Amino acid sequence: MIKSFKYLLALSIVLLAFGCKSSKRIVESGELNEKLSAKQIIKQHEKGQLDFKTLQAKVKIEYTEVGKDKSQNYTLNLRLEKGKTIWLSATLGLARAKITPDKVQFYDKINNQFFDGNYALLSDFLGVELNYEKVENLLLGSSIFELDSKTYKASTHEKSYMLSPKDQDALFEVFLLLNPGHFKMDSQQIFQPREKRFLQVDYKSYQDVEKQILPETFEIIAVEDEDQVTIALEYKSVTLNSELRFPFRIPSGYKEIIIQ
């Protein structure tokens, strides 16, 4: 049960969705220019940073434990105030999560239990030290790492530009693939060979929302030893910049879950 809860909570944190009722899918049309420098690619990527205050959506997800014939489908309600609060609620409020830059909270009415902690759980699950800003960047199609042309080099890989550290750490390898059309992420890949850990985030499609480019669907793959979890996300019925509330109160008498 504890292992399942860890996956569910980690999943809840990453179920942020971005889009709009009037969204339009972007047709990829960019062509690679092998003469572009890392500085130019990073500059174009930074131009695509998003500007909105709040977001509300329904999120359709599929969670799969590969090789174990375990697959589950969910639809969650999401409310988000950019940079401040992520709020998720299951049908009938049977489970609810509230995530801020300082805290990660969750309660489950079915089993009368709750969790009140920080980002250590998600960092351990994905194998990368994360905070609120990095999670938000991952879900917006932006780099989870701070990019600097002094420390990154540019190349091409298939249909994408690729940024990687000039001094690649053999214990922690990073590869960032950017789309030549809009310079958002095509893929973010992190390898930890010694720990046999691998994290890959593949952005399948993007959408144009009020002249902002946002992910439409993407897939998170987390591998540790022989265990692999895949989380596929699709965003539906999304609105931007509405006035939102984020009700959250852990019911009295619930048992606290302590995860070592």
Rank of each mutant, 00 (worst) to 15 (best):
S155Y: 08
T156E: 05
T156C: 03
H157L: 12
E158Q: 13
K159Q: 12
S160L: 09
S160C: 10
Y161M: 05
P165D: 03
P165Q: 07
K166P: 00
K166I: 13
D169Q: 15
A170T: 14
L171S: 12
L171W: 11
V174W: 06
L176S: 06
L176I: 10
P180M: 02
H182C: 08
K184V: 04
M185S: 05
D186G: 02
Q188C: 11
Q188K: 03
I190T: 00
F191S: 00
F191P: 00
P193D: 04
R194Y: 12
R197W: 01
Q200I: 05
V201S: 00
V201K: 00
Y203T: 00
Y203A: 01
Y203N: 00
Y206I: 04
Q207F: 11
E216V: 06
E216K: 10
F218W: 04
E219I: 07
I220G: 11
I221Q: 15
V223G: 05
T230G: 11
T230P: 10
I231Y: 03
I231P: 02
I231E: 03
A232M: 11
E234T: 10
E234G: 14
Y235E: 12
Y235K: 11
V238Y: 09
V238Q: 13
T239N: 14
T239I: 09
N241G: 12
S242H: 15
